[in-house]
Simulated assay, not measured.
Amino acid sequence: MRIVGAAWYALDAEHRKTAEANIRLALGLNEAEARRLTRENFRHLARVFSQFPRMARMTRENFRRFVEPRGEEHLLKSLERGRGVLILTGHFGNWEWMAYSAPFFLPARLNIVARPVRPPILNRWVTRLRERSGNRVIAKQYALLHTLKALKRNEMVGFLLDQNAGKKTGVWAPFFGGYVLTHKTLAHIALRTGAPVHPVFNHRLPDGRYRIDMGPQIPAPSHGTLEEKTAAMTAAFNRIMEEQIRRFPDQWYWVHRRFRRFRPQPPA
């Protein structure tokens, strides 16, 4: 995959420039350092994309050959309350393997909020593969309705919160020293339903597997209006996301234009 990643880096000028600009803005690296990290990132992403079809080989009996779960007790404790579980995550490590393996070590179904892939024929294939282990994919446009239904069934719902949001669907939240529009749906649902939110991330180990770290519940703000609490909780989500990225900077999805609406100061 090093060769494939290097070829992608050399040939895809658009994503290369986006990643390098994002890295320089977020991490404050110089041009040479940003190029080096971008090359590592392209190699990592090439590996992740090539591994996508391989997850069909994963079973309840052999999943530990692919992933190493840690911290399941946090999610199990929350599921005992019967309100379901909301999961904060992002395009980090091998997010596809992380989601696919969940039914093999957790008792509740995982629903994944995802933007449909284009073209539709490819989306159908991707969705079938993602759901093969027992998960369910929720199309982004139906996220609210189906998330509420899933929580009533005491299921888990995962949100990848590292994508751009619009002015209607997002709130300006701190991220890498500035502010970016971040989807507020996760915080809004958590505050409305009382469902706990847990951070779940993964990173690649030296042996090629991915360690899945499941953290304790993220506290919800107790004071302020719903709008103020939504903003505060979304800011907490971004802080957690940023911590993960800084720990393993080569394993995030830098090729996305996450900083397209970056502001040094919070907009009025």
Rank of each mutant, 00 (worst) to 15 (best):
I121A: 04
I121N: 05
I121D: 03
I121H: 03
I121V: 14
L122S: 06
L122Q: 03
L122W: 10
L122P: 03
L122V: 06
N123M: 02
N123C: 07
N123K: 01
N123W: 06
N123E: 12
N123Q: 05
N123P: 01
R124D: 02
R124W: 04
W125V: 00
W125K: 00
W125F: 08
W125R: 05
W125H: 06
V126F: 15
V126P: 00
V126L: 15
V126T: 12
T127E: 12
T127C: 05
T127N: 11
T127H: 10
R128H: 13
R128M: 04
R128W: 14
R128F: 03
L129S: 04
R130C: 09
R130H: 12
E131Y: 04
E131M: 04
E131W: 04
E131F: 07
R132N: 10
R132E: 14
S133V: 03
S133P: 14
S133H: 13
S133W: 14
G134R: 04
G134M: 13
N135D: 09
N135V: 03
N135R: 09
N135S: 14
N135P: 00
R136L: 13
R136S: 13
R136D: 09
R136F: 12
V137W: 07
I138L: 10
I138M: 05
A139V: 11
A139R: 10
A139C: 02
A139Y: 08
A139T: 09
A139M: 09
K140I: 07
K140P: 00
K140L: 02
K140S: 11
K140G: 08
K140M: 07
Q141K: 13
Q141N: 08
Q141P: 01
Q141H: 10
Q141E: 15
Q141S: 15
Y142R: 15
Y142G: 01
Y142K: 15
Y142E: 15
Y142P: 00
A143E: 03
A143C: 10
A143R: 02
A143P: 06
A143L: 08
L144V: 14
L144T: 09
L144Y: 08
L145V: 10
L145H: 13
L145G: 09
L145T: 05
L145F: 12
L145Q: 14
H146L: 14
T147I: 03
T147D: 08
L148Y: 07
L148I: 08
L148K: 03
L148V: 01
K149G: 02
K149T: 02
K149P: 00
K149W: 11
K149D: 09
K149R: 13
K149I: 10
A150L: 02
A150R: 06
A150G: 06
A150H: 01
L151S: 05
L151D: 04
L151N: 06
K152L: 10
K152D: 11
K152E: 12
R153Q: 14
N154G: 11
N154I: 13
N154W: 11
N154K: 09
N154M: 10
N154C: 14
N154Q: 09
N154T: 11
N154E: 11
E155T: 08
E155N: 07
M156N: 10
M156Y: 08
M156T: 08
M156V: 02
V157K: 00
V157E: 05
V157H: 00
V157I: 06
V157L: 01
V157Q: 00
G158F: 01
G158V: 03
G158N: 07
F159S: 06
F159K: 04
L160I: 05
L160T: 07
L160M: 13
L160H: 11
L161F: 06
L161Y: 00
L161S: 14
D162W: 13
D162G: 04
